[in-house]
Design a protein around this nucleic acid. Structure first.
Lengths: 245, 245
DNA sequence: ATTTAAATTTGACATAGATCAAGTTTGAAC
DNA sequence: GTTCAAACTTGATCTATGTCAAATTTAAAT
C-alpha cells in the first residue's frame, strides 16, 4: 500500500491528529454538545492542552482524575521502581488513549510523560461519568472505545509475549510502531522514532549494545534503512516473519 | 494473609466459581431479569455449558458470536501459525472472560480450548447488545466490565514486557497465576498448575529444559516447593523481587 | 501390577546476548 | 564553527540460555 507523502498536514513539525481521527472523538463529541447546551459554568468536559517535553501528565498511584487522548507528539508510560531506573512499559501516539485503564480502580497504574513537545485532549472522568448517565449515546460510545482498547491491548500482548530473541523483538517493535503511526504520518513503512535507543532497549528488555547490533544487522541485511532515528522498512515481509506475527 | 483451606467448596474436583464471583455477573444478572420478564422464545441470553478437555470454544478468525466467562477448569488461548506449533498467548481461569476483545472487530483474535473438563457461561453478543440498548443498567455494567478488563490487561502486559531472564519470567508467571486463582482456590501461595511445563515454556518464550532448570533452582534455593504441578511459594517476597514487579 | 508413552529432568556443549571497554557520531550550547 | 556531553556503535570476553542427547519420573492403558 502506498500513501501520498504529502497527503497529511503537519503542525509545528509534530505529527498531529484532528478530532475526527481521535479515538476519544466518540465520547468527546456528545460531551461538547452537552457543554454547549447545558453551559456548565467554568468547569470543562474536555479541553486540548499543550505540554512541553518531559511534562508529567500524571503520576503512578495517584487518583484518577482525567483520561487523555494524544493529539500530537508522543508519551512514554513508565513504572517507578525503587532503583530509580526508568522502566518504560508503553508508548502512546496521536489518536491513542492514556490512563483509561485506571477507570477500574480509579488510580493511575503508571506515570505518563511527554517525550517531546506534545498536545493532548483531557477529559474529566467525573464529568464524563455524570453526563454519561444522562446521555445513552455516551455510554454506547464508551463501550465501543473500551472494546477497541481491549482489542489493541490483546494485539500488543500477542506481539511481545513468548518472544525473547533480539531480532524478533525489534522486528515486532518496528512493525508495531510504524503501524500505529501510519494513519497520520502518511507512511506505512517509515517513521522517525520518538525515543532513543536506550529507551527502546529498556522497553524490549535488551541491552542498548545488543539493540544497536541488531539495528546494524538489519541494515546490513537490507531489511531496513537506518538514519539515526529515521527508519525505513525495506523488506516488510521478512520482518513480519522474523517478528513471528 | 491466611485463608481457611476449606472455606471454599469445590465441585467435581474442579475449581469452581459461583455466579456471585463471576466477572460477567453484572451483565448476566440484568439479562436474566429481562429473559424472565420478556420470555424470549427459545433463544437464550446466557447459559452455562460444560466442556470436555480439548473442547474448542471458538476458532481464531471466525466471526464473534458469544462472549464467555469461565466457571470452572481452565482454558488456553492460542494462535495457529503455519508451522503447526501450539503458540499459547494466554490462559483463562474461573471468573475471567474469554473473547471480549473481539467485540471491536467482531472476529475472534485467537483460538480458545478447554485444558481439562471445564464449564463456561456463554452470553450471546447479539442479544446482549440489543438488550443493552433498552436497559441502561446493562450498558453501565458493560462499561465497568470492559474497564476492569483493560486494567487486567495492563497489569498483565506490565508483568512480562521488558523481561527476558528465565528467572524473572517464571517468578512473574507463578505470582500471576496464583493471584488470579487465589479467590477460589482459597490459597494465595499455592496452586496446581493447569498446564504442563511445555506449555509454560512456550508461553514464556523459554525452552522446556531451561524452565525445568529454573524450577529446580527455585526449589533448591527454597523459593518454592515443587511436587509435579503442585507449586507452593515459600519466599514470596524474594520472588516478587526476582520478577521485578 | 505391568507396560508403555509422555513428561520432566539433567548433562555436555554451542551460541546469543550481557558485560566491560573504547571508540565514534550526533546535537545542543556557546 | 567549536566545544562538550550524550547517544550510539563496535570489539572482546563472559554468561545465560539454547541445543542435542540421554536418563528418569509420571501417568495412562492394559
Amino acid at each position: 500500500m502506498t500513501v501520498p507523502s504529502q497527503s497529511i498536514q503537519k503542525k509545528d513539525k509534530h505529527n498531529y491528529v484532528e478530532c475526527d481521527d481521535c479515538s476519544m472523538n466518540s465520547v468527546c463529541r456528545p460531551l461538547s454538545t452537552v457543554k454547549q447546551s447545558i453551559n456548565l459554568s467554568d468547569s470543562f468536559l474536555h479541553k486540548r492542552i499543550t505540554t512541553k517535553a518531559n511534562h508529567i501528565l500524571f503520576n503512578q498511584s495517584t487518583p484518577l482524575t482525567n483520561i487523555y487522548a494524544v493529539s500530537s507528539g508522543a508519551f512514554k508510560l513508565l513504572l517507578q521502581t525503587d532503583d530509580s531506573t526508568e522502566n518504560i512499559i508503553g508508548l502512546r501516539f496521536p489518536g491513542e488513549l492514556i490512563g483509561e485503564d485506571a477507570l477500574f480502580l480509579k488510580t493511575y497504574n503508571y506515570t505518563a510523560i511527554a517525550i517531546g513537545d506534545s498536545s493532548v485532549c483531557k477529559v474529566s472522568v467525573e464529568q464524563m461519568t455524570s453526563c454519561g448517565q444522562l446521555i445513552p449515546e455516551i455510554q454506547k460510545n464508551l463501550i465501543e472505545l473500551l472494546s477497541r482498547q481491549n482489542y489493541v491491548r490483546q494485539k500488543n500482548f500477542q506481539a511481545y509475549i513468548g518472544k525473547k530473541s533480539a531480532d524478533s523483538l525489534l522486528a515486532a517493535f518496528l512493525l508495531n510502531i510504524i503501524e500505529r503511526n501510519a494513519s497520520y504520518t502518511g507512511s506505512d513503512n517509515s517513521i522517525e522514532l520518538p525515543i532513543n535507543r536506550n529507551n527502546i532497549a529498556n522497553f524490549l528488555g535488551l541491552r542498548r549494545e545488543t539493540l544497536s547490533r541488531v539495528f546494524s544487522k538489519f541494515q546490513k541485511e537490507q531489511l531496513i534503512q537506518v538514519e539515526g532515528r529515521k527508519i525505513k522498512l525495506i523488506a516488510q515481509e521478512n520482518l513480519i516473519k522474523i517478528a513471528d506475527l
